[in-house]
Design a protein around this nucleic acid. Structure first.
Length: 316
DNA sequence: AAGCTTCGCAACCGCTCAACC
DNA sequence: CGGTTGAGCGGTTGCGAAGCT
């Protein structure tokens, strides 16, 4: 048995609203409010509309201070960021953007932002493939360098680990908060591991958006990070496998087993934003839902929640 | 200029959740 | 405690405008 219809469909007008209908609805709500009952509202004011339709019209169009179109870059970033973190919770996303409605944001995402990001991602993939080819050529060149071979052989013979990084890259100044600098020794495992726990790196690995939305500069925040080094990072599988799963790939959570395991896919394996659901339903969502259920978080708190996630602090 | 395709947006549909009885 | 109802939400559809051939 299905549920009873909310209104008599036969006597209800559908389709676009006329200016007269808009005026009736607007003036009534401005004077009397909704009365907490949308279903009864159309009858009260003599509108042949479904209550749900009235609600939608008011919320998405007639309500004061509604903005339409003209999304700014900042708004784009917020939408993308929240979408990647919490998925298509349009009402929550809309709560972060004053004057925007969930419907507007949803439409904007589906018609423009998704394509925009897809384009960026494709460009990045092409660039990545190009980098891989260049690095491959470079490695072949390096193999021919007998001096280096001798050095490595000598190092191996003496029990010294072969450096992962060319000397000029081995110590890298890492910007940290408050403008201070830490020098990480990339040939020192402890130091390197420590670098990987740098908030910026952590953000890059836990927040795929920082890679997607900043695809033009995947090492954003590392102004002094040599661009060639990023190529080496990609190529150095030994380091990658041990420490940076998900660095160039994207980490997603397998919810089929309770969200407990992490599946890492490379961006070439999962290269469609149509497949973005695999990215977005992170543990954050279940955490978020749990908090909502406990009443300890309201939608407006989502930004704070995000911050707490990225910086590893606990919600109050 | 006409026909066709694509795009953007408003509105609808159906589902879930929570309040109320 | 279960059933009913309305609010709210996200996915989808339909239509008009714009762009293209």
């Amino acid at each position: 048995m299905g549920r009873a219809p909310c209104c008599d469909k036969a006597n209800v007008k559908k389709g676009p609203w006329s200016p007269e209908e808009d005026a009736k609805l607007k003036s009534y709500i401005e004077q009397n409010g909704t009365g907490g009952n949308w279903i009864a509202l159309p009858q009260k004011i003599g509108l042949k509309r479904c209550g749900k339709s009235c609600r939608l019209r008011w919320l998405n169009y007639l309500r004061p201070n509604i903005k339409h179109g003209g999304f700014s870059e900042e708004e784009d970033d917020i939408i993308c960021s929240l979408y990647v973190s919490i998925g298509s919770r349009w009402s929550i996303i809309a709560a972060q953007l004053p004057g925007r409605t969930d419907n507007d944001i949803k439409n904007y995402w589906n018609t423009r932002l998704k394509k925009k990001l897809l384009g960026k991602q494709r460009k990045e993939q092409q660039a990545q493939a190009q980098r891989a080819r260049r690095v491959s050529n470079m490695k072949q060149e390096m193999k021919r360098e007998t001096d280096n071979q001798n050095l490595m052989a000598a190092a191996a013979a003496s029990g010294v680990n072969t450096p992962y990084w060319p000397l000029e890259y081995s110590v890298h100044p890492m910007p940290v908060s408050n403008s201070s600098i830490i020098d990480y020794d990339l040939n020192n495992q402890t130091s390197f591991t420590s670098m990987l726990h740098h908030p910026t790196i952590m953000n890059m690995t836990t927040n795929p958006l920082s890679m997607v939305s900043n695809a033009n500069n995947i090492f954003q925040g590392f102004e002094n990070f040599p661009s060639d080094l990023s190529e080496l990072v990609c190529e150095n599988q030994q380091v990658m496998n041990r420490t940076m799963d998900g660095f160039y790939g994207m980490e997603s959570i397998d919810m089929s087993n309770g969200g407990g395991s992490t599946i890492t896919t490379t961006s070439t394996e999962s290269n469609s934003w149509g497949d973005m659901n695999s990215l977005v339903y992170s543990p954050l969502v279940s955490d978020y839902e749990a908090c909502c259920q406990q009443g300890s978080i309201i939608p407006q708190d989502v930004a704070v929640f995000e911050e707490s996630r990225y910086f590893g602090t606990q919600m109050q």
